[in-house]
Design a protein around this nucleic acid. Structure first.
Lengths: 266, 266
DNA sequence: TTGCTCCTCACGTCACGTGAGGTGGC
DNA sequence: TTGCTCCTCACGTCACGTGAGGTGGC
């Protein structure tokens, strides 16, 4: 018969752990002194403790350890638990490896630029949106600057004419076509149709890469360029037309505009 | 200005998280209504939230995230934090990979034997022990059975003659020599020397592989064999003479004896 | 008498999830 | 008036570590 201290020393666990396992019923001392409350263990209990520690080391919760130790799990069930655990660990390793390469990318950025990049790319799902929109085409990128703003104004005018007020946030989207760029601009609505504009449902995507653009629309091309580059750096594939979400558009000046660029992924 | 619900939806975080970050001072709403307590955020705060989430994703604690977001960490300090984090993740991956191969080994055992092995091997450090011992030699393994028991008796007799009582647990150790096996048997003491026996300090080891043997000494050879096999299966190297620790030795019969076999590793 | 070991609470950890119970604008 | 959104507590999570405050045998 061993005192709790001796037992703990033999097994290289803490006294506190033994008390904890006792309180959970996982490993009950062979004898507990009725008057002092002192716990006494037999050396034979080391076997159970060793199994307990080994199972814990595999990453099972104490609850699961209890189930296995209780002895009423068949080989089949045990195999199921181990298989599940294996899948969880593989998942964990994958996630850690992703973290690792992300950290290494950031370390390289610091070496090169002396600071951490300002732009934060965020991978997230993109919601579906019902939009009251108008569309147009341009031959090349630079022409967009002249066209998108007025298109928003026209949509807003027609919504007002139809008795609705333009809701926030405004959306734009861009698609390459044979002749150049096909694009749309609009506002969220709930109605099925609105006179004078087209009502469409922008498709939701499970995955998209996004970044925030601050300030004037003059430089939004640069931010798009950076986002596209990041998609490629991460080895991702494009899954649909890019969108702009106008989160903050104070009328005084474009200086404090906040636009989210969303690139759907495949 | 966005309500907490809108802000949460844009950023794909829970409302509860935003309140949590507010309470920690990590992301304070631009405005809090004095009477209702409603929180309002600006779209520009999405940038800070995105950085917060990204840093959290890298595995930093919210405390560390706060440090980084506060902005008064230089590139050098940031690099230090990232490097440390990288080391932690590598460690984590290594540990998970060890767990993984251990689980796979157990799954193979189940496939083959229809159950999980009874023997639990435990890797742990081996303590130093001061021993009052006698030593002897035999030509071959089978002769040990006749020699070890009586050797313990002789040591015990001499301890009693020297006015000491044999302390638990008893230790034995075994070493290969040119002519066969050199071995010792003894009991822990604190004295520097004891008349009639040799006092030695058994060396501590940082790592050892151990297993429990239950019952009679007749079959302890099999358990040693299994332990040695396991050392090799794990790709470990031997680091010293094996030890036996007699944890439980009721005199009635050897049926309930419990012996720990300790194999030091290199 | 001074250590050492053992005991039972009970708080703290970490980042929230999840009610409970209540309020204010459409 | 019925939903919806928002609010503030406050408990629960998981496996113990770490005092606090006290007791019993060498």
């Amino acid at each position: 018969m061993l005192s709790i201290g001796e037992f703990a020393r033999y097994a290289r666990v803490s006294v506190r752990m033994l008390r904890h396992y006792d309180s959970l019923g996982l490993l009950v001392p062979v004898r507990v002194d009725a008057t002092t409350g002192y716990r006494y263990y037999s050396a034979e209990q080391l076997t159970r403790l060793n199994r307990l520690v080994a199972l814990k080391e595999l990453g099972f919760t104490l609850d699961q350890v209890g189930t296995v130790l209780s002895g009423d799990v068949g080989a089949e069930q045990l195999r199921g638990m181990l298989t599940l655990r294996r899948a969880q660990i593989v998942e964990q390793i994958d996630a850690d490896q992703a973290r690792l390469s992300e950290i290494e990318a950031r370390l390289r950025t610091i070496e090169k630029e002396g600071t951490m990049s300002e732009l934060e790319y965020v991978e997230k799902s993109l919601p579906a949106v019902r939009l009251a929109q108008l569309t147009d085409d341009v031959g090349s990128q630079p022409e967009l600057g002249m066209k998108v703003g007025p298109l928003f104004d026209r949509v807003a005018d027609r919504l007002v004419a139809a008795g609705l007020k333009p809701d926030n946030p405004a959306y734009a989207w861009y698609e390459e076509s044979e002749s150049g760029i096909h694009f749309g601009a609009g506002f969220p609505v709930t109605a099925e149709s609105v006179d004078g504009v087209e009502v469409v449902d922008l498709q939701p995507y499970d995955r998209g890469l996004t970044v925030l653009h601050h300030g004037t629309m003059e430089t939004i091309g640069d931010t798009w360029q950076a986002l596209v580059t990041e998609v490629e750096r991460r080895g991702l594939t494009f899954g649909g037309p890019g969108r702009e979400v106008y989160l903050e558009t104070p009328m005084e000046s474009q200086e404090h505009w906040v636009t989210e660029l969303q690139q759907p992924l495949g």
